[in-house]
Structure formats: C-alpha cells, structure tokens
Simulated scan of single mutants.
Amino acid sequence: WKSENPDVGHGEQEILAIKEMERIDYELRFIEPFESTDKAYLAYEPLGPNQTEVTWGFEGRMSYPMNVMIPLMNIENMLAEDFQTGLSNLKKIMEK
C-alpha cells in the first residue's frame, strides 16, 4: 500500500504479521516530508456479536528537530481521514 496524501506526505506500508481476528503488525515507511521507518499495529477485541474495538498503535523514534515539531503538527488530525477510510474499509470486510 502506498500513500499520496498531500497533508501527510508520501510513504508505504507493508504487513509483517497477521494473527487472525486479533492483530495486524505492519511497517510504515515514510519518504516525504522526511524519511522514517517505524512499526505499527491494529489490534481487535470483540465486544459483542456485532461489535469490535479496534486499537491503533505506533512505535517510533525521532531525533531533533522533528521530535519537537511533531507534537505541534497535530498528526492525529492530519491522519484522521486516512484512519476513517481504513476503518470503513475494515468494517465492510469484517461484516462479510
């Protein structure tokens, strides 16, 4: 999967492991606006017959000056549309 979101930058994602109905581990490789390779995951927990909680996690390190700039950039809002699209697609797949 490759991203061309102008608000976030350019990069790609590779699935590293899937534990069915529990977790997906993947690697994020950002190319622009800065190069970075980090690990992330999606974890799933059934809450009821038609309800599942999805948790997104991210592991990464950034050196100065990016470690100072990232909190000021409001990354969550920048990625919100991509996350919502991903969750909507996941919902469609899970409901099949």
Rank of each mutant, 00 (worst) to 15 (best):
D7E: 13
D7L: 15
V8Q: 01
V8H: 01
V8C: 02
G9I: 11
G9S: 09
G9V: 07
H10I: 15
G11W: 06
E14W: 07
E14K: 14
I15M: 10
L16Q: 15
L16K: 15
A17I: 08
A17N: 14
I18T: 11
I18M: 02
I18A: 02
K19D: 14
K19Q: 13
E20H: 11
E20N: 06
E22H: 11
I24V: 14
I24D: 00
D25S: 08
Y26D: 00
E27G: 01
E27K: 10
E32F: 09
E32Y: 09
F34K: 01
F34N: 00
F34L: 10
F34W: 12
E35K: 14
E35H: 10
S36C: 00
S36D: 05
S36E: 06
T37D: 02
T37M: 07
D38F: 08
K39G: 07
A40P: 04
Y41P: 05
Y41N: 12
L42N: 06
L42D: 03
A43C: 14
A43K: 15
A43D: 15
E45K: 15
E45W: 05
P46R: 14
P46G: 05
L47G: 04
G48F: 12
G48C: 08
G48M: 08
P49Q: 10
N50Y: 13
N50P: 01
Q51P: 03
T52L: 05
V54W: 07
V54I: 15
V54E: 05
T55R: 14
W56K: 05
W56Q: 07
G57T: 13
G57S: 15
F58V: 04
F58R: 02
F58Q: 06
G60R: 09
G60M: 05
R61W: 11
M62G: 00
M62T: 03
S63H: 00
S63M: 02
S63I: 00
Y64T: 03
Y64H: 04
P65D: 06
P65Q: 12
M66R: 10
V68A: 08
I70H: 01
P71Y: 07
L72Q: 14
L72A: 12
L72T: 10
L72H: 11
M73L: 15
M73K: 03
M73R: 07
M73W: 11
M73I: 10
I75N: 05
I75F: 12
E76R: 06
E76T: 04
N77S: 10
L79C: 08
L79D: 00
E81Q: 10
E81D: 13
E81W: 01
F83V: 06
F83W: 12
F83R: 07
Q84E: 14
T85K: 14
T85P: 01
T85Y: 10
G86S: 10
S88C: 02
S88I: 08
N89G: 06
L90R: 03
L90K: 03
K91M: 04
K91I: 02
K91F: 02
K91N: 08
I93H: 07
I93F: 11
I93E: 08
M94K: 01
